[in-house]
Design a protein around this nucleic acid. Structure first.
Lengths: 220, 220
DNA sequence: CGGAGAGTTGAGAAACCTCAAAGCAGGTGG
DNA sequence: CCACCTGCTTTGAGGTTTCTCAACTCTCCG
């Protein structure tokens, strides 16, 4: 992606508003008015939908470099909560100015479209997972996806800390927290992983991939 | 949405390419190069992903007025098949020209963004369904969703023809075709619906709505 | 040091799947 | 135009996976 100096200046102006969030803080609430997208600079978030009856569903875990808030464009109202799972720094992108700038910069426009499309593909990957995988396959896919994303950010692909609880993993994967706990224990028993509460080490990635293997492995 | 006459002319030029598809025809195949979005003028489509082992996963059903192909923007390669479930007429929207035009017409740009965002919201709704609902709730939600969409197009909200098989419904809802069949029979037994193979009549929409959501949390 | 939240584990129940067989509908060719 | 075929649908019985409920332990903070 190539920009002129003047364009870079505009982009910089767009991304100048930065804010920090502590663990547990809400980036936005479901129902609140949509003004901006948010780029995560550092940290870790979850997005969740709360059903009227109290059921909650985690719809995603987002880490540094990812864009959050795309769902709100459709109605100008946020359709989910975004909650920091660790202390985080975000960069606010006022959407009106983003649209304006992307009319001037075709490269930025194309980039924005690809980001939105990637979110659609990601969601369809999770639909696949929820619709056709069993507990072991879902959890293996989840761990491998986290591994990939940590590796892409320069962290270890085989050892990392979970930022979320068993309950949140379960909600995301359409399983109960007890099932997550049991399946992790089984993986440990089978020497696939080593797990100490929040610390995960992937011991045999080949066999983990094999668990997901018969299914199509789409990055989450 | 307001456009000048010149703008309307441009839009018309964009949407001038129309094609018809017969039942079973593919609009595009997974893996093929992405050139255009498609607006459905009349008819009914499904999108699906085929696993290596031959199993199919339906990712959506699309009807008149809806846009198909958004997932392909991210990689310029279609990530799913789109198949006509009845004879259909579509309108091809070359994406390059769409982007170009949307740089000139902020209203069109905003419209495109909203369409993409709506697809994200839709997918997250299905994630919620797949992740936290039981078979009866999923099927009730599915029938009510179809009902809404038919009603929005001027057709009856309470009586319509299913364009897809039990297998395709099951694939979409993360259930086996036998479970779909049994659950439909249960609904009929309970006088919630009347079903004759592909013909559905919703007899008690209030109770169907009640099924979606409260079931699991009602005291025994 | 104590409490609250988080995690583990077990046993029994519920939901859904698999396998199997039989019934139906709709299109095609004789 | 009808009979047949093929694919779709229904229904049953038994098996598997996951959930629910419960008890207990662990960890992290204040």
């Amino acid at each position: 992606m190539e920009f002129t100096e003047a364009e870079l200046h505009q982009l910089e102006a767009l991304t100048s508003t930065k804010r920090t969030f502590l663990r547990g803080d809400y980036l936005y609430h479901s129902g609140s008015k949509f003004e901006s997208l948010f780029a995560i600079r550092t940290g870790f978030f979850k997005t969740q939908v709360i059903h009227e009856d109290g059921r909650e569903q985690v719809t995603g875990f987002q880490m540094a470099g990812e864009i959050i808030g795309l769902d709100a464009i459709s109605t100008d109202i946020h359709t989910c909560d975004a909650v920091a799972l660790e202390d985080s720094e975000i960069c606010e992108l006022p959407f009106n100015r983003l649209e304006e700038l992307s009319r001037q910069l075709p490269t930025l426009q194309r980039h924005l479209h690809k980001i939105m499309s990637r979110e659609i593909v990601r969601d369809q990957g999770i639909m696949l997972l929820l619709g056709s995988m069993r507990a072991e396959e879902r959890l293996a896919a989840f761990l491998l996806n986290l591994s990939q994303r940590f590796a892409a950010r320069g962290y270890s692909a085989s050892a990392f800390k979970l930022r979320m609880t068993r309950q949140e993993i379960g909600s995301y994967l359409g399983l109960k927290l007890e099932t997550i706990s049991r399946t992790l224990s089984n993986f440990q028993e089978s020497r696939l992983i080593d797990v100490q509460i929040k610390s995960i080490e992937l011991l045999d990635m080949t066999r983990l991939l094999g668990l997901v293997g018969q299914q199509r492995f789409t990055p989450i």
